[in-house]
């Protein structure tokens, strides 16, 4: 029974998840107990007291019984207290953030999640965290409600536009865990997935330096495209030639740009690297110097990705 019951819950990813499961089992067995009493009698009595052929219909006349009625008022009442306090305690524990928690910003939008780490790096699709470190997620939404749900940690929190909310967990198991969007948010609600990857410290150090392990096998263009989509380039730079807050990326590779200070230059690797790290150094003519710097928040491999990506925009 216990084994089966455990199999009806997701993998355990933290101590908190284990505590919740214990409580869950308690509520389950309590419910089972009441169900067996009620269901058992509801089936047994109709069989036992079935009107048999030839029998008269004279039944017992029992209108009430003080003791019994008290029993099934008081016992559930007491149990309610148990349920409430146990539920409340585990809930408080789940939402109390340890002091040394690592803060990660989570942003939901239709229909993906992005994560911003304390060192300024950011990413989407997968949330990387070190093992046994308390994590605090500070979350908001760009458009409608979403909910960040990590079944393995047994936690969930709605994210709301225009307000920060938080949740916390301390992963104690290495591995990859599913993340869902649990608040209905439109067409691709069911596609708004992400992964949680819990790594040991050594792996995490590598991640901090070199980015997600899958970069190693990824086409740089694809890395660039991910950055373009998840880091906000999209909002100023189009790919189809339309002018936004910034110039479109369409066909700029190899082009000679005129700058506001009268000079000019060719769009090549160095120029793009500079545009991203020190955007104000050379401002393209006809544009305001509004592009933010990405110094410290894009890894070299990501900048190379951007270069490859822009190269590909014919």
């Amino acid at each position: 029974m216990n084994e089966w019951l455990r199999s009806t819950l997701p993998i355990v990813g933290s101590e908190h998840a284990r505590d919740i499961d214990t409580f869950y089992f308690f509520v389950f067995y309590l419910s089972l107990f009441f169900f067996i009493i009620v269901g058992g009698l509801a089936v047994y009595f109709p069989i036992k007291y079935r009107l048999k052929p030839g029998e008269t219909r004279r039944s017992a006349h029992i209108t009430d019984n003080f003791f019994l009625e008290m029993l099934w008022t008081v016992v559930p009442s007491l149990l309610c207290f148990v349920l409430f306090f146990w539920g409340f305690n585990t809930y408080l524990a789940a939402f109390t953030v340890p002091n040394d928690a690592m803060e990660i910003y989570v942003r939901g939008r239709k229909w993906n999640w992005t994560f911003e780490y304390p060192d300024g790096m950011a990413g989407g699709g997968t949330l990387y965290v070190p093992l046994n470190r308390p994590i605090k997620l500070i979350m908001d939404s760009e458009d409608v409600l979403h909910a960040f749900y990590i079944p393995a940690m047994r936690i969930k929190q709605d994210v709301i536009p225009g307000r920060y909310v938080y949740m916390t967990f301390t992963p104690t198991v290495k591995g990859e865990f599913q993340i869902f969007c649990a608040e209905y948010c439109g067409k691709d609600h069911s596609g708004m997935l992400a992964m949680l990857k819990v790594m040991d410290d050594a792996e995490y150090e590598v991640f901090k330096r070199e980015g997600p392990p899958e970069y190693k096998t990824m086409d740089p263009k694809l890395i660039g495209e991910t950055i373009y989509k998840t880091r906000g380039c999209q909002s100023c730079h189009s790919l189809d030639g339309t002018k936004g807050d910034g110039p479109s990326f369409k066909g700029i590779w190899g082009k000679t740009e005129q700058f506001a200070d009268g000079t000019s230059g060719v769009v090549d690797e160095n120029y793009i690297r500079q545009s991203v790290l020190e955007p104000q150094a050379k401002v393209v003519k006809g544009f305001e110097p509004v592009m933010p710097t990405f110094q410290g928040s894009l890894r070299p491999v990501e900048i190379n990705g951007i270069i490859a990506f822009i190269k590909g925009q014919k």
Binding site: I20, F23, Y24, V27, G87, Y91, K156, E183
Partner: peptide, 15 residues
């Protein structure tokens, strides 16, 4: 009752 229990509902809500 599962859903009324705070910590369990955090897991089960909207499932």
């Amino acid at each position: 009752l599962f859903l009324g229990s705070l910590s369990i509902d955090i897991h089960l809500h909207d499932t």
